[in-house]
Amino acid sequence: MSNVRISNGSPTLERMEARQSEYPKPSACRNLFGPVNHEELNRDLKKHRQEMEEACQRKWNFDFQNHKPLEGRYEWQAVEKGSSPDFYFRPPRLLKAVCKSAGRQSLDVNGNCQTVVFVGSQGISEDTHCVGQKTDVSENQTDFAEQCTGQRKRPATDDSSPQNKRANTTEEGVSKASPSANSVEQTPKKSTPRRHQT
């Protein structure tokens, strides 16, 4: 029974071995539903991204484009270097394997992917307590930017996600402050953060 080929043209494989590294078999490489209008697609994707950005901005009262806190339920505060777990600053381990799509960094570089330290939010579990933390901005911890670039963590994208399980920093806590020269030169090292954030 398990020798049955479910899909036409697909061999039954024992999936115990490692992934094949060969190039894909031509038969499986096919376009299913005709050509994609890339221009239109990119426009739509961009629109979605903007919507997500706005939702994010509203949710966290933080202007991610300009790295400025806004008025709202959260109060933002800069973190001291070293006060967050090392986890957030460690460079990623698996640079090569992970960062295949490094070509896309352009996106990371431009506003959206600049992650910000959510200092204030450390103690705040997303939806529930909105206790005002301290104050201040996390405008420029350029020093962080240095260590933080490489994270494989996806920054603040939780926005719309109402999972308050991982109460704090886990996802949102990456940092990297201003799009300074500093960050520019690091971006190439960024491994995964392929445009999360938005």
Partner: peptide, 30 residues
């Protein structure tokens, strides 16, 4: 992403796939 794009006979591009990823995870609320 690159490999998956090859499987679509390059009808989509890796950057589109990555954008779509973001949209997907967002719609699935992570």
């Amino acid at each position: 992403a690159e490999k998956l794009c090859i499987y679509t006979d390059n009808s989509i591009r890796p950057d589109e796939l990555l954008q779509m990823e973001l949209l997907l995870v967002n719609k699935l609320k992570w």
